[in-house]
Amino acid sequence: MHELVFAQEIINIAKSFVPNSDGTIVKSIKLEVGEFSNIVPESLEMCFEILVQGTQFEGAKLDFDLKPLKFKCIDCAEISQPDYPFFVCPNCSSSNVEILSGLDSKVVEIVTLE
């Protein structure tokens, strides 16, 4: 259940941008979630809903932008979206690849009601 930690970190980040005191209503928090990041959106939503009860974020929705795994082959420079979960270049079969997206998860924006 590491989603609970992720949910708390999302709230901590959001708090640093939307302080409790100013009465701003948060409509949604947009997340980029890597396909390869071990985050289950449904679990994260559930944890978030529990943690925000009674805070300025109660009622806010999490908006997920799922990022597919994408990598660049260091040997032949081909950029590909591989067949999960193999990290092998479909062009030259090299396993020497650099991940471009799909590993990390980020908070990208907060939408507030004025």
Binding site: F6, E9, I10, I13, F17, V18, L31, D104, S105, K106, V107, V108, E109, I110, V111, T112, E114
Partner: peptide, 9 residues
């Protein structure tokens, strides 16, 4: 209004 953040969770 939209606040842009771009921060790893």
């Amino acid at each position: 209004s939209v606040i842009t953040i771009e921060r790893k969770i």
